[in-house]
Simulated scan of single mutants.
Amino acid sequence: MLWVKAFHIIAVICWFAGLFYLPRLFVYHAMSEDAVSRERFKIMERKLYRGIMMPSMIATVALGLWLFSYAPEAYLQAGWFHAKLVLVVLLLIYHFYCGHLVRVFRDDGNQRSHVFYRWFNEMPVLALISIVILVVVKPF
């Protein structure tokens, strides 16, 4: 079980690296004014989303389900676990919305300013703080 937990934590770290960095790329992409920069950001966004974020998200979910399988009754009775699941579902929605935004930028369809993406970039930070507190402190 400890090996599964270790690899789950590694996958979470890799996933969050992408969740933190991709919206930052959106900030810079929204600010870019020349075609060369825009094309470079398109490549970076696509590679980050497909090459790092998707595999890390899949590994995170798969390993999390594996951990859950060790003691489903205990997890289902824990209030903190239900709250964590809600946050994970919201992160999954955020993740796939980022994928949508990668396609919007790819198609030169972005209508939002860099300020929007600066705020958008903060959402996974709040989720991470909340999830770590729930898992470590188990407040309820």
Rank of each mutant, 00 (worst) to 15 (best):
W3A: 13
E45D: 11
P124F: 04
C98E: 01
E39R: 14
R103N: 11
F16V: 11
Y75L: 14
P124E: 02
K42F: 00
I10W: 10
A17M: 08
A83D: 08
P139R: 10
M53H: 06
L92G: 15
L91S: 13
P72A: 12
S69E: 03
C98W: 00
L2F: 15
V104T: 12
D34Q: 12
G51I: 01
K84A: 14
I58Q: 09
Y94C: 03
W15E: 00
E122M: 10
L87P: 02
I93F: 15
V125A: 12
S130F: 11
H8F: 12
F68S: 13
A17D: 09
L65V: 05
F16W: 05
V102R: 09
M44T: 07
D107M: 12
M31Y: 08
Q111C: 07
E45H: 07
S113K: 07
S56K: 09
M31H: 13
C14R: 04
A6N: 02
L87R: 11
I58N: 06
R40S: 13
R118Q: 13
F20K: 03
V89E: 10
L87F: 14
H82R: 04
L25E: 02
F41P: 03
Y21V: 03
H82S: 06
A17R: 01
V115C: 00
L134E: 02
Y70E: 10
I133K: 00
S37R: 07
Y97H: 10
G79A: 12
H29C: 08
V102F: 11
L25N: 00
R106Q: 13
F7E: 15
G79P: 02
G99V: 03
M31A: 14
I9G: 06
K5W: 09
R24C: 08
I131S: 00
Y94S: 07
P124S: 01
L134H: 02
P139H: 11
P23Y: 03
V104H: 02
G51C: 09
R103M: 09
V104G: 02
N110W: 04
V137W: 04
H82I: 03
N121I: 01
E39S: 15
F68C: 10
I13L: 14
L25Y: 03
A35P: 06
P55G: 15
V36Y: 14
L90W: 10
Y75W: 15
I52F: 08
L92F: 12
A11N: 09
I133Y: 00
S130E: 06
A6V: 08
W15N: 01
V4R: 02
I52P: 01
M44R: 09
G79R: 13
S37F: 05
E45N: 09
I43C: 06
M57D: 02
L65D: 03
Y21F: 11
L134S: 04
R50H: 03
A59F: 06
R103H: 10
W3R: 15
L91W: 09
F81K: 13
V137R: 05
A6T: 05
